[in-house]
Design a binder for these strands. Sequence first.
DNA 1: CACCTGACTATGACTAACGCAAGTCAGGTG
DNA 2: CACCTGACTTGCGTTAGTCATAGTCAGGTG
Lengths: 169, 169
Amino acid sequence: MLRCMDAARLDGFLADRDTWRATHCSIGKAMDVIGTRSAVLILREAYYGTTRFDDFAKRVGITEAVAASRLRELTAEGLFERQPYKEPGQRTRFEYVLTEKGRDLLPAVLALMQWGDKYLQGKHGAPIGMRDDATGEPVRVEVRSPDREVPLAELRLTPNFTEEDASRP
Amino acid sequence: MLRCMDAARLDGFLADRDTWRATHCSIGKAMDVIGTRSAVLILREAYYGTTRFDDFAKRVGITEAVAASRLRELTAEGLFERQPYKEPGQRTRFEYVLTEKGRDLLPAVLALMQWGDKYLQGKHGAPIGMRDDATGEPVRVEVRSPDREVPLAELRLTPNFTEEDASRP
DNA sequence: CACCTGACTATGACTAACGCAAGTCAGGTG
DNA sequence: CACCTGACTTGCGTTAGTCATAGTCAGGTG
């Protein structure tokens, strides 16, 4: 515990890591919602503009059964809305449209992409480049305070709950 | 495909979403590495400063068997290094220390946390607050170009590969 | 040298995630 | 009215992720 040169700084009773469990941790809860490969790839496709059932299955490369399960779950969790639509001369169908909750996962998904681009692509590098459509400048995902990017070692974590809560389920 | 008001802009042949598959996609590759709940929570603990086997198992709340598997996999993938250390009067043991590759996943993990704080915590809000240790300012994960935060609808994605690559395995 | 402790390994069982293949079903088209 | 198509559902088998419990193993302590 003396060699924490690359860890965040833990404030208050958080500092004694043996006295509390991160049971209400948002990271765990988030993983319960989008902890599968197919869920994240469906989100990716939605960011690319996909809205229809068959397109999700085809473009993600999963079976229709899996696409149906994931879309049902993600809709139940409120990341997608199932909306009726009607093309002329066609019957009414449903499409899966991102909600704000779904759109707000963009930083998480892009952070994964950015990491994969750097470490998992070999010499080819990023297969897809991201730019600001308004300015043409490259886009990155950053952990930052208003003025600057903050590295892990300069992050300070403070509890917003009491020590008693920490031990409860 | 006309209602893409909340999707990224796809450049070049990317625009015709039916002609290519995201087979080399970094997001999928990243999910192959950290697609499990236990892997992400182990990373969280590492960011909090944990380095020892038993502590990972205990603090994450997983069995030692699972901790052993995940730490083995994450070490094999290069996110952790297994380093010998010796406390005085103790025998030599091993600890799991984050590599740069592991540390670089911080934005992805914090993005999940930020999203979970907003949507999965009910009225309590974020159980843990993040601040810049140098300035005391709050810290956020952002998708941004040098000057500003970029929303999904103003992201432009450009291919760094050829149309032929797009169809290959 | 018996004991303890930290770091694992082993066994067994259950569930979730996934693929493949086939079936259903509603409504519009010829 | 037979057919087609998009949007699913069903059934089956495999693998991966997880838990619970118990066992091993190395080395330092008394």
